[in-house]
Design a protein around this nucleic acid. Structure first.
Lengths: 341, 341
DNA sequence: ATTAGCAATCACCTTATGAGTCTGCTAAGT
DNA sequence: ACTTAGCAGACTCATAAGGTGATTGCTAAT
């Protein structure tokens, strides 16, 4: 594909993203002032259509990018604008007075993503079993229960009331024991190790009790990730203007209520990696009218933006990237603080 | 208003709820077989319209109930059907294997409300400060923090990491002291009392530390109620079929994301009380196209259903009532279990 | 390889038409 | 005083028809 064709494709995507209307050869000529005639542009557009980058709504409408066209645009033609100073400030400020609680921090993050991009912002909470155990506390609740509290390095606190008849001193001893031998381990590793074989050298009565206890703590519950979303309303505004929209919207809402499917939809990435999933590339059929930009911020947590296929990728990608980096930085600090303790 | 007029009003509301179409005098005659002619019915309808119970979309359309009409229907004409056996079973079964965690229980409840009524189900979490303190645990996190855990009678656990340099034994003593003197008190009362005046007789060094500590625990955070919703998709399906619907839907979503306004919208009630808010009766303007059925299940928690004004009040009210009672029963059991400890 | 010019295609908007529904009114009946 | 029959008028809804404007594809000339 020669330079002019690339340029034309870029202008088509660009213009369509901004206006939402099919782009004609005329428009390209006028707005972007190429030094060729509209007929030449038409010829190039025909080529681009045959290659599958653009399409048209009816036989003589202007051209609209296909998913493949957006993909080419994002991969080769996208110029990532640095985030406007104002926005950078807004983000730093919002994170400024740091929240103590992780869930508030993540909610805040989702809100930022949504309000800065004008689409739906989402954050998938970290997997607790990917974090490291900082502290276990066991507290007797008379007569026959105990409260167990797990504190992980991200400050995530998981508490559970478990039935046990062990007396208070016994619990305290077990707590000490667990803290000494388990501190700094990943909760997930612990779980698998413990189910496979009891810890070596743990044979006496005390450790058996400890073992039983910790098995009650480490359950599938730990793997569960929650989905936080903000800005659903934006989505309705941007995407739906035609008939049948309601049915589309309904499907989308159903999907958002089904966390497991959504998790599938935002794709797997390695920590720090950002991916875009454009339209029909999505494995989940209901999301074909949308695009997803998502970033793994560590501990299997994911944040990102869900918007119409026709969205400003430059803005969305750079915003997601920036916010993702901020969040990673904040979590790193919080982790460091935890380790210092 | 004589009996026949009441009957006609009832049939209009009834039929409109079921079909969604304006009701004509003919229809009433055919479907409900009154022994008068359609002209007579028309005359009565005219009266009902003059009184403001019904209205019409245009000069010669059939009649549609007004908010006042629905109100009269709900207050005087509604026959509460007992919930179908199947549904009762479904509810009992869903609650059968009891969740340990309160938030899962409430989420479950919202889901039940939504799926059984086919509208949006919501649950507003209890106010923690309305529950009674069952237990406080203070655990040292070396070097200069402590983990404080509050367990209330509903099993709600609120934990917080607070900075303190007090040594371990000191914390344990304070914990004992707090447990002895505060157990069984309402968290909310504690908060107000403590801000007004320190506890009497608490003058020594130890109690001053305890005082400082507990003040860090009891914060506005405790008052915060979360909103859990399920079945948003239902709402889109039932309510919106005409143009401009998107704008309406967008407003609704905005409202749902703004918890404080929603809390205002579902109204205040006393524990156990069920209220209906029909259409324009709602203080919040955005909700004028909807009705709310809500029930206070204790501790300032509210559950209910949000649906179109044109909804099956008989079904929705009885479902809400039944589920509300189940939830109250479950919470009572959980409270009793806590007190026995 | 590029361009000008023109016919053909199609969405979109407005207007027209006809069938169908339901009310309000009047005058007659009970 | 209440009820009824019958009919004109009001209005929706669906569909069709015609006009306008945008845009392409094609062909022949440059």
């Amino acid at each position: 594909m020669d330079a002019r064709k690339r340029l034309i494709l870029k202008e088509i995507v660009d213009h369509y993203i901004r206006t939402g209307k099919a782009v004609s050869s005329q428009t390209i000529l006028e707005k972007y002032g190429l030094s060729v005639s509209s007929a030449t542009i038409r010829n190039d557009m025909k080529y681009l259509e045959k290659q599958g980058y653009i399409t048209k709504a009816w036989s003589s409408s202007g051209r609209i990018p296909t998913a493949k066209g957006y993909r080419f645009f994002v991969d080769w033609l996208l110029e990532l604008s640095e985030l406007a100073r104002k926005q950078q400030h807004a983000i730093l400020e919002a994170y400024g007075f740091q929240k103590q609680r992780l869930d508030e921090l993540l909610q805040q993050t989702a809100f930022l993503l949504a309000s800065l991009t004008g689409h739906l912002g989402f954050v998938l909470t970290p997997r607790i079993d990917q974090t490291e155990l900082e502290f276990i506390a066991l507290v007797k609740l008379p007569p026959d229960h105990a409260l167990a509290v797990l504190v992980s390095d991200l400050g995530i606190v998981e508490s559970r009331i478990i039935p046990t008849t062990l007396p208070e001193e016994q619990l305290a001893k077990i707590g000490d024991l667990l803290n000494r031998s388990l501190q700094g381990r990943r909760l997930g590793e612990l779980a698998t190790e413990l189910t496979e074989s009891p810890l070596e050298g743990w044979a006496d009565r005390l450790t058996q009790d400890a073992f039983a206890l910790i098995q009650q703590l480490i359950t599938p519950q730990l793997t569960r990730q929650r989905l936080i979303t903000e800005g659903l309303a934006h989505l309705l505004q941007t995407v739906f203007t035609w008939e049948e929209a309601i049915e589309e919207a309904r499907k989308l809402l159903c999907l958002l209520e089904d966390e497991s499917r959504f998790i599938q939809a935002i794709g797997k990435t390695r920590p720090g990696e950002l991916i875009t999933i454009i339209g029909e590339e999505n494995l989940v059929k209901e999301l074909h009218p949308y695009s997803v930009v998502s970033l793994n911020y560590g501990y299997d947590g994911v944040l990102g933006v869900l918007g119409p296929v026709r969205m400003d990728y430059s803005k969305v990608v750079s915003t997601t990237q920036y916010i993702g980096n901020r969040l990673r930085a904040i979590l790193a600090v919080s982790k460091a603080a935890a380790l210092k303790r």
